[in-house]
Design a protein around this nucleic acid. Structure first.
Lengths: 212, 212
DNA sequence: TAGATTGTTAATCGATTAACAATC
DNA sequence: TAGATTGTTAATCGATTAACAATC
């Protein structure tokens, strides 16, 4: 991470994709790759590949290309995937449960350390390897455990109250599956929103307006 | 939908957000709104609001602003949310199940009409109001029913074979939760990708590189 | 050395913002 | 009419692509 003078989000959002493709190449024991070939595989321009990678430093070698393994590791580091993060899940409804059971947090350095739900009936139930805790245990748990990220899988209306508690407990990073606008309330919060319904609407538009 | 000369994806991806905010305003019985006020609520510039909306026609009125209800309906129409779509779910694993049970398809005009899973043990099980079908019933079902969209909730390795079958059955629209690159194989496919792990990686980057 | 391919600068393209005349 | 606010053009900004000298 050398010449880090404000990387644009456009570049950042492409990094996971580079990381995926490089991981694949690495698994196939490909040792080196040129920007041209990588671009062809990823369906982008070679210029963009070189431009993107150069935001972080000269990982390549003229006349040779890039070492797949090294580049993969560099990007992994840039993304912060070598660190360990402890996440808690807020809301053990269907969606939160799916995430807890099915999503490979480990692969990205995350560990789901607790899960909270407002429904008293759910308290004590198992969710994968976790026992569902009551909302009221939030303060105690966060007092005794490091929590790096909260994953919000509760309905929009329930978010604000919950968010205020999480924020006052010092949590600043949120993976937000609700439509509540976290950044508006806490401008220093680090937020990644997943708006599934927005994406389905976009598909809907494409169905009506693309080719066909 | 008047002056539709190629709207950029940047604009399209903002439409669901307009739609959401306008729906809220409408629920609050707000009758009209100016681009300046809407921009303030949505945290964008008034210029962008006017520019965006004008891609589709002059919905506003000088000196007055926009009618909330009308604008909402216009955008709804542009997105294609007034139509009815029949979707099938491919893969009734944890994630697919969550979607089937929890996601409000109806609201966007979608109806989940069938669900398929490769695991014979799952056949016949109930998933919400749907009975899980065997993969082998795909051809028969699609022969007898209109299917507008397939929702892919199967692992990357399983996608290609499945995609080929779906494509040959005439399905061209895909909501893709896997990392398989559909557009590369079928360039005329209409695809919306949801790459959850990419988004978590982006959050990870932000945690390491933003403020703090 | 000759060939390949990067790193980087310059050119182009597209998207956002500003400004203002048109008009309700 | 005067005030407000759009629709739209022009200016700015940022992101992508092209080009090429540096260098392995």
């Amino acid at each position: 991470m050398s010449k880090n003078d404000r990387i644009s989000m456009s570049v950042i959002r492409r990094l996971p994709r580079y990381y995926r493709f490089l991981s694949e190449l690495d698994e196939q024991h490909v040792e080196r790759i040129s920007s041209t070939k990588l671009a062809a595989i990823m369906n982008v321009t070679a210029s963009q590949v070189r431009q993107d990678l150069n935001c972080f430093g000269g990982f390549g070698q003229q006349g040779y290309g890039y070492s797949v393994k090294q580049l993969k590791e560099e990007i992994k580091g840039i993304l912060g995937l070598n660190n360990r993060y402890q996440a808690i899940l807020i809301g053990a409804g269907n969606f939160g449960s799916a995430l807890a059971n099915h999503f490979d947090f480990q692969k990205l350095g995350f560990e789901l350390v607790a899960c909270f739900d407002g429904d008293p009936a759910k308290k004590g139930q198992l969710l994968g390897e976790l026992t569902i805790r009551s909302e009221s245990d939030l303060e105690e748990f966060c007092g005794n455990n490091r929590v790096d990220t909260a994953i919000l899988c509760i309905p929009k209306d329930a978010v604000e109250a919950e968010l205020d508690r999480l924020y006052s407990l010092g949590i600043r990073s949120f993976w937000n599956f609700s439509h509540y606008d976290i950044s508006r309330r806490y401008s220093d919060a680090i937020v990644e929103n997943v708006h599934l319904s927005d994406m389905l609407m976009t598909l809907c538009y494409k169905m009506n307006n693309l080719n066909s």
